[in-house]
Design a protein around this nucleic acid. Structure first.
Lengths: 400, 400
DNA sequence: ACCATTAAGTCAATTCGCTTGACTTAATTA
DNA sequence: TAATTAAGTCAAGCGAATTGACTTAATGGT
């Protein structure tokens, strides 16, 4: 039958899928709750004690969980809590930015084990990729010195770089057109032998917040990322949403007001690019970060003026995000130094009215996320970890 | 352990879950492909022929699929295609609007079997709910006359009404404050004995487009609904996205421009409410629909002026949706008559530039969805059907 | 001090749904 | 007419969760 159009469907599942799913569910339960006894895990996952026992035994043999000391509490036999073994898995995260690249190795619980960075020649991917492969090789060697099993436990390489992806060629050199054209994933996969995934920097930031930050355990959160451009990383229904072409959340490209093609994109007014321009700074300046921090701490009038102005646009961005996504919270993250981010956050208050302004809220409408410049690389690394261990990356489905 | 904070985790699964999931996958495959042989189903779902055979046998016994005549085609034994049995399941959909309510019964494939409507007193839910219960009872009786098994095969009642839900009390009578306060779901569940679900009207519209319309088989689609207000129904990753509080997509409440609290919400400029005001029509007028259609067909200057004006705002809305969600397509739906919707669609072109304007598109950036005024009720009815038969409503998870 | 109670966790048998591989049936093509 | 191709069945096997009885080890009431 059907020799013309391909048959479309989700794939079915079998016992292998069941088991894989249940393993992931247990790992997630431990991630969310810290440490749990087998009995607790049974309650958490709705599985029987026996099933849990078997799976825990498996996980322990695989080196993903360990037993802690037994705890006496109340009546009944003392229980033995289990927790995740951080060195049970590793992933490499790679941030590619306009003039610099960062590589980190994170473990199963999202802690950074190794980090390395290097400058990149602007928009010259061929030599750039060599630099990157060198860094990756270096962190792998370093990791091998820390954990003997490291290579076997390396689950993948996650890449984060500024989006959007796959558009017609751009003449804007800040959009990294040469990198956009370059067969990056293939080259990295070939050069490292690892599974490679790609996301934009805001998405990576959101992933980082989800695994170790403010979005930990929150199913609906949007991460507003103020970097060279601005974008939103979307955690919807507990998972990262990428859109049809990996470009969801590119909020900085929203044209302000319905006026027409002539109007300004949001990120021309409220991004760090606009700040550099406002201050007459060179974005490639190596001391940029420290300079900005100093200016912010000193409450320099020029930077305060920018903050005031940018905050007004960002306030509207939050309003937009709240109105459109109805998240439980919005997290402000930034490539900017913390003092600057903190002042920006303050200047964004009071927030605009929106449907988020409802009775009985449990989380703040807007909160500050990480301002660690390494967060994007960490988020990039978290992606392969999630792919390997998170139940939301449907392990139930049979391999396609 | 953990007697303080509750344990958090997804639930595990077992063979029952596996089986339920596989049944759903098969139903989805048939829904998407029309009719498939067992061998085709095995290929589509990655299950073995044997597993498929068993499940098909089950589904056939349950009256959800039937065999068609065997088909000879090419070498090999002739195959027997199976298709869904429309009367294998029914659901009731209920639209509650400001001054009217519509009830439909749809079958497994989304066809309308019975319909009924009645006027509602504006913002008086107590008598209103009696009217509704009367209508529901009536359509159930009618359905029983059509299909003997109908009551046993009724999977639920889906309700659609204008959002947003759960805000502080509003004084805007068009937001139906009394209905918002009323314990609607409980009353309907008690009065009908059915499972009751709720979504906003744009979401229902999107669900309708997904099951029988332009979003059929499309995993990332946004439905821009122009009704009394405007809102977006979001199909993300193949499923409806509701947000943290069921209010995702309330795009009409976006304040235009970052200016501040004083600025106008989008829907004050581009909704049918604005049209009624512009034309000096009473929204409760029973002939409104026909009047609008006549004006649009006649290209009345006043309505054309509104179209021009609204199109500019809607064009921006599409730009916003494309930029933020990166969908494969945007579908324009409306409570307005088709001639008006069609002119509105035309006036929205050319669209604003956005990341959706990419090479190699397969679907149009913007297309016209249904203009059937019953679509919202149909979408409301589709929700319980999906909940009962769609693999995306994770049947794998054990009951919580 | 003792025993009933509570709870964690194991053991062994069972169940259930998918898989495996051989087999049957029925068409086309050389 | 025989080889080939493909749909579909049969029967045994397997794997993962379930079931229910059992063991272990603590607390709390008398």
């Amino acid at each position: 039958m059907h020799d013309i159009s391909p048959i479309r469907a989700k794939s079915g599942t079998n016992q292998e899928g069941t088991s894989a799913h249940n393993r992931r569910v247990m790992i997630e339960a431990l991630r969310l709750n810290g440490a749990l006894s087998r009995a607790d895990l049974a309650r958490a996952t709705q599985l029987t004690k026996q099933a849990v026992s078997n799976i825990v035994e498996d996980l322990e043999r695989d080196g993903l969980v360990v037993a802690l000391d037994a705890v006496r509490k109340g009546r009944g036999q003392p229980f033995t809590p289990y927790r995740l073994v951080p060195e049970g898995a590793f992933a490499i995260g790679l941030q590619i930015d306009r003039h610099l690249t960062r590589v980190v190795v994170v473990d199963l619980v999202g802690s950074v084990m190794v980090r390395a960075e290097a400058n990149l020649p602007l928009d010259e991917p061929s030599p750039g990729v060599q630099t990157i492969l060198g860094l990756v090789a270096r962190v792998r060697r370093e990791l091998a010195g820390i954990s003997a099993q490291s290579e076997r436990r390396l689950v993948g390489l996650g890449v984060a770089m500024p989006g959007p992806f796959g558009l017609r060629e751009s003449d804007d050199k800040w959009m990294m057109p040469a990198w956009q054209q370059f067969p990056l994933l293939e080259t990295l996969a070939a050069g490292t032998g690892l599974n490679v995934g790609l996301q934009n920097d805001a998405a990576a930031c959101a992933t980082a917040e989800r695994i170790v930050g403010a979005a930990h355990g929150v199913d609906h959160a949007v991460c507003l990322y103020v970097g060279y451009g601005i974008a939103a990383g979307l955690i919807l229904n507990g998972e990262l949403y990428n859109g049809g072409n990996g470009n969801a959340g590119e909020i900085g490209r929203v044209l302000l007001s319905p006026a027409g093609p002539g109007s300004t994109p949001l990120e021309h007014r409220a991004s760090l690019a606009s700040l550099y321009q406002h201050l007459g700074l060179n974005p490639a300046d190596a001391n940029l970060y420290d300079k900005l921090a100093a200016l912010a701490v000193a409450e320099d009038p020029k930077i305060m003026a920018w903050i005031e102005h940018a905050a007004s646009d960002l306030r509207w961005s939050v309003h937009l995000i709240e109105t459109i996504f109805d998240p439980q919270t919005v997290i402000l993250t930034s490539g900017a130094p913390e003092p600057l981010a903190r002042r920006l956050l303050q200047a964004m208050h009071p927030l605009l009215p929106s449907i988020a302004d409802r009775p009985g809220r449990r989380l703040p409408r807007l909160q500050l996320g990480t301002t660690d410049p390494w967060a994007i690389a960490v988020g990039a690394a978290a992606e392969p970890i999630s792919r390997a261990f998170d139940p939301r990356f449907s392990a139930i489905l049979k391999a396609g």
